[in-house]
Amino acid sequence: MTAERKKTRPIKVQPEMGRRQFMVRVGTLAGVSTVIAGGGLWLHGDEPVRHRAVEVLTLKDFRVSANGLYPVMAVVHGENVETMVREAVQKLGGLARFIHKGDRVLLKPNVGWDRQPQQAANTGPELVAAMARLCQEAGAAAVWVTDVSLNDPGRCFARSGIEAAALQANAQVMIPGKEDFLATDMGGTVLRVWPVNRLFHAVDKVINLPIVKHHSLSGCTLSMKNWYGVLGGRRNQLHQDIHTSIVDLAAAVRPTLTVMDAVRVLKHNGPTGGSLDDVQRENTVIASLDEVALDSYCLSYLALRPEQIPFLAMAEKRGLGQVRWQNLNISETQVS
């Protein structure tokens, strides 16, 4: 059968090209050649790899204007965290002074570690919830809770109790992923352009919610050190000049308000703790507009003196606040 088919099939030849066909073909190929040559010139360059330019942002100042009628720092001792937080904020003039209707507010607790509340390695969940509720009451449009954790972030937010507490207080929890950082100029001495959690560029107000903890290298981790948690990247390199880094961070991130958790204090083995023996109850909440004074005040919980902590004097020199909190208008109250 194949042999037969071979016989009958005519031999195919290429058809001759007419003038018109020739012109069309040449015209088309000339057009294609022009596009290729043009594209080549357009893409021609001296760089081996073409990168899109990265926009570098700066952080805005989240502070509100000073008001001499109110103290700079309010220390409240008590048992119930929510009552203490409300009292402390009230002493500073009430949250309406800081949060206006429609503000998008970011709460920055310390959620660094996969630890439970009683281990005091993270800010207490009651304090976060209380602050979130206060913001809602002040008419905030949205309240966010975020941090850049050192341990697995999912576990940190869940086991610290902060995620559940925040959600219950109608706040939104943002656990930053790889894509959630924006290049930001921190304008510091050692800190220049670093990846910063993008939420800090999306909100109107920022409230710092640190916890008092021991830390071997810096001596303590308090409110200024808590700003490590805005950074992504290889931030563990900051340890090489930890005091300057802390001051650079505190100068770059100026919060609306700081509320310190000194309810449970991690006295040893910080900043991770792990054992309940490392923790001691101090039952205190401190709201402050001066981070330097606040950190200086909190040293007593860790049996430290300001001279032992270089970043305090450095921060004062940078104009970030006063080390001698005794000179400031401070209120101290006891609530039940």
Partner: peptide, 16 residues
């Protein structure tokens, strides 16, 4: 001759 001890900071045991 550069300060660091990140390893000490993150060590999870108590005592570290």
């Amino acid at each position: 001759d550069v300060p660091c001890i990140v390893c000490e900071e993150v060590c999870p045991t108590s005592p570290k």
